[in-house]
Amino acid sequence: MSRLELVKRTRTDEIRSLLRTERFPHIWCPGCGIGVALKCYAEAILKSDIPVEKHIIVSGIGCSGRAAGYMRLDGYHVTHGRPIPFAVGLKTARPDLEVTVFSGDGDLLTIGGNHFIHAVRRNDDINVIMINNFTYGMTGGQYSATTPNGARTLTSPYGFIEGTFNVPYMVAALGANFVARWTPLHDRELTRAIQEMFKIDGFAFIEVVSPCLIFGEMNNIPPLEMLKHFRKRCVIDHDADLSKVGLSTDPDQPIVLGNFVRRDRPSYQTRYRELMEKIRGGGGGRG
């Protein structure tokens, strides 16, 4: 065995040690991007300086939401749309933990949209990895707030007409400290971006634009074709004008990727602790 092979093998073993392999086979379709994103998260944990037992994963409901159940971490699989407030409570009460929300676009931006925007506004010190597969995968492929206009879904059989979130643009405008977008084809960049999230005090967000078989099927794009589509259309531009990075089904439109935003706004949790120290230093007692 070559040195390189050996290194690779130990790496794989280490990653496996972070997965609940006794629960495999997992529920994800072959060709789905969620598993790759989860592997990148595991890899980033291994590379982080934070002890494994301090890494916490919180997921909502959906295909992506099953992530919490496959990681050998303290993992919380909560109600649909609510992983962010759960994570906010956990992180606020336990500042020593590194809390990552891993969930879908429907969960985080549609039913959970209100929690999402307020967590960014407060700049809660959590990491959010959002799988954007353009649809509600788990329930059979209905449209969500990230479905591109014109796309066919179970509930937009004539093509989607509602309008679509330009996610990085929105999250950047809300004031997040870190905003990135990658795909499962960019596993190294994605892993590095997740490592970066762990270092940030404040709201850190990655949109993982992900192939979905159910979505592809309804739009006549076979799984492999979808990946080729991604490969062809992806452009890395860290300094992109975010107002122009909205996603569409147009094969000639680029899918712009990158680590777009890096800011240092102090998190709610940091500001609260400072406030608490000031108040307690000032004598405490009953005011």
Partner: peptide
């Protein structure tokens, strides 16, 4: 904050109870 605890006003009651469950 006087007793070393954490207060947060959430965006709604769903967020409130979920934050409580997280804590």
């Amino acid at each position: 904050p006087q007793v070393g605890g954490y207060f947060i006003q959430m965006e709604d009651e769903i967020g409130s109870i979920m934050a409580v469950l997280g804590a």
